[in-house]
Amino acid sequence: MPIRYILKQLFMPPGVLLLLLLLAWWLRRRAPRLAACCFVAGLGGLWLLSLPVTVEALARYLEREPVLATSAWPQLAQQAEVIVVLGGGRERDDPAWGGDQPSALALERIRYAARLAKASGLPLLTSGGLHYGQPPSEADLAAEVLATDFGLATRWRESHSRTTWENAVNSAALLREAGIQRVVLVTQAWHMPRARWCFEQAGLTVVPAPMGMLGVANGRPAGGWLPEGRALWQSTLLLNELAGAVLYPWLYSTD
């Protein structure tokens, strides 16, 4: 198991918050005041991240790209040459389907890319590697869904990337061979700023096509101040994205 994955689970929520609670238990006799601080930080962090209002606030900070109006979809072919849809994970061995399937996040992206492709007539590129180190790749799964469920062929498949940066670099290499430089980029709105930055660093001109907004009125009882499991999961996605937005320019900038 990659050390990077282990470290990410330990030092990003909810892992780091659970470690704080464990530390509070271990320190309860040795250092009661420090134990109390760890307990409050761990439990308070879990409560805060489980609130829909927290998700809404974090997402509004990240979701900076405007959506594409549906009336603009047919004109996309005048602005770009291909639609690039990024992988968003995969689920292993679903018995209902007889094999691996794209995750819920990935399916959102695929569906939106299919609508854009049908409206604009632009070709498709799917990007995403071997999520568990074994085939099929996320790109192949996306291409299969596009063909089977939407009747759309995928012209290019980028099947080796493990990160958003590799999505961009590998896709740019494929498209460069075809003389293509302008892309419509499809991913979740909270992921779009980092994804767009990566693709532009790789030398491509990007028309952002964000979807799956979380920074909208949450519509939950009590205004979103009641904790829920889904909000905890979404908060961890957004915090991971914030960390990526900070680290990527430092790790990958070509300037």
Rank of each mutant, 00 (worst) to 15 (best):
V82E: 02
R90L: 14
Q134I: 12
P249L: 12
P102W: 02
P249C: 09
W165R: 13
S71T: 15
I3M: 11
T236K: 03
L20C: 13
G151K: 10
N170P: 00
Q101L: 14
R111T: 13
V84K: 04
C198K: 02
L237T: 04
L43Y: 02
L76D: 11
L125S: 07
G89M: 05
R230T: 13
W25E: 13
P221S: 07
S137K: 11
P74H: 07
A173R: 15
L19P: 06
A147M: 11
L7H: 01
G151H: 11
G212I: 02
P52S: 11
V82R: 14
A147L: 10
L49I: 04
A222G: 02
R220L: 12
T154Y: 01
G179D: 08
A96L: 14
R182S: 12
T70A: 13
R4S: 05
D100G: 07
I110H: 05
L146Q: 05
L242I: 15
V145R: 14
L62W: 05
G42M: 03
V183R: 04
E56S: 06
S171I: 12
L46P: 05
C198P: 02
V206W: 01
S127G: 09
V186Y: 08
N240Q: 15
P208Q: 02
W225T: 15
L107Q: 14
L58K: 08
E158M: 07
L185Y: 04
H191W: 03
R4A: 05
T126R: 04
V16D: 05
A35E: 00
G15K: 12
S253N: 15
G42K: 07
Y5S: 13
A117C: 09
A31G: 01
N218P: 01
P227W: 02
G133N: 10
L76C: 01
P210Y: 13
V40H: 00
P74T: 06
C38Y: 00
S137W: 11
L204E: 07
E228T: 04
V206Q: 11
A119V: 06
T254I: 00
S235W: 08
V82G: 01
A104C: 01
A24Q: 03
R109I: 09
L34P: 00
V186N: 08
P95L: 10
P123M: 12
L124R: 06
D149K: 12
A119R: 13
Y61F: 09
A209G: 11
T148H: 13
V145K: 07
L76P: 04
Y252E: 03
G215W: 14
A77S: 15
L116P: 04
S127M: 10
Q181E: 15
K118W: 05
L18K: 00
G223V: 11
W26Y: 06
R176T: 14
A41Q: 03
L7P: 00
A173Y: 03
R162L: 13
V67D: 15
A222P: 02
A231I: 07
T163N: 10
A222E: 04
E56G: 04
L116T: 12
P227K: 08
E144H: 14
K118A: 03
A113L: 09
T154R: 11
A142P: 00
Q188E: 13
